[in-house]
Amino acid sequence: MPTKAKGIHRELWVGALFLTVIILLVVFGWLMGAIGPLQSHSRFYVLYNFAGGIEIGSPVRVAGVKVGKVSTIEFLPEVSQSAETSQERTSLKLTIDVSTKALPSVRQDSRFYVNMAGIIGEKYIEISPGTSSAPILTNGSTVRGVDPPRIDQLLSQGYGVFGRIMDFMDANEKTLTEFLTGMQELISDANTLLKGRERKKLVTLLDNLNAVTSDIHEFSLRLKNPETQKFYDQVFELVERAHQIDKPVIKQFLQEEGIRARIF
């Protein structure tokens, strides 16, 4: 039989237990970020076309330090155009709460990236600290975030290219097969040629070729010595003079010498 407790003692215990549970719940909620910490926040709206895995509750970091979280993610209607930002059309509007202590670093030239942390792959919004010359971003501002690279898109494009290659190969399968078969035959022929009886002949041929080239080498060396140079010069001179012998000269010569010849 359970022991009995009476009156105030019992009520006190039950009340204390109840209170403990409420306190624990609040503490858990606060630690896990379901209940906002008791400090002031500034709210910004960040526009993206692609959020890269950001969820409600994802942390917001300034210079790598956690200072807030994403509180809502909303899909913008097609026509919605924010006057503050460029004319560009964006499809997502993220509301982020940033602790006021981090505000001095959030300036108008700050950029809002979507990043991924560590091996776990937690996605967060990184706000790069702005330059001191730019004014501090005011509460409620709307800014354009930097869209993260579309890895999925790159992949899908890659798939497209692969797809086209595949199509081409499918369409020209016969040609390709023929080409490959031809190549194979060629190689095997070459192989037999190199391995067979003809090998000796080829070796002789190569030896001859070797001899010829070495002769040519010797010859060209000889051409380069001073005597040859002299000979060259003479030849050049000769050629020079020969060059001057053009048609009229020949004619004149022929006329003169020819006449003489006729005389003989």
């Binding site: 359970p2 009995k4 407790a5 019992r10 039950v14 237990l17």
Partner: peptide, 13 residues
């Protein structure tokens, strides 16, 4: 109810 909350809850702590 209070009795049961005490017996089942508090006394099981």
């Amino acid at each position: 109810t209070l009795e049961q909350m005490y017996v089942l809850g508090v006394q099981s702590i």
